[in-house]
């Protein structure tokens, strides 16, 4: 039991990213408001970023700004940090596009609640 708790404390970044992912998925699944779904999606993306950057961390490593003095130093892994920039850009693009779609949905139906939209659609097809 003590070892289990110790391993959780040692890997707190990984466990936190899993918790963030589950929180984001809960937000996406349970809320019918489309804006809240987008917020949940952003939380999930943040969890992935945290997980990816944590993989590159090295204990007592410095950030990869290479020392010009010539001393050999331990640097963290620069590759995950460089690659996750792409992920951040894609996340921003997805958020902007979904927000614009939500604006259009609000123009068309007058609401952004998914259940109410479904009701309006059902009335239309029935009537």
């Amino acid at each position: 039991m003590v070892e289990f708790i110790k391993s959780i404390i040692d890997n707190i970044n990984y466990v936190a990213s899993v918790a963030l992912f589950v929180i984001g998925l809960y937000t996406v699944l349970t809320h019918s408001n489309l804006l809240k779904k987008v917020i949940g999606l952003n939380i999930m993306e943040t969890a992935i970023f945290l997980f990816f950057v944590s993989i590159g961390y090295v204990n007592e490593g410095r950030s990869p700004i290479i020392n010009l003095g010539g001393d050999k130093m331990l640097y963290i892994n620069p590759l995950p940090s460089a690659i996750i920039l792409t992920g951040i850009v894609v996340a921003v693009s997805i958020t902007a596009y979904s927000l614009s779609l939500i604006i259009k949905i609000h123009e068309a139906y007058g609401t952004i609640d998914l259940n109410e939209i479904m009701e309006i659609k059902g009335e239309k097809s029935n009537g």
Binding site: S7, N11, Y14, Y57, G61
Partner: peptide
């Protein structure tokens, strides 16, 4: 996740 190589 706990089976991964430990953080750092």
């Amino acid at each position: 996740v706990l089976k991964m190589p430990s953080l750092g």
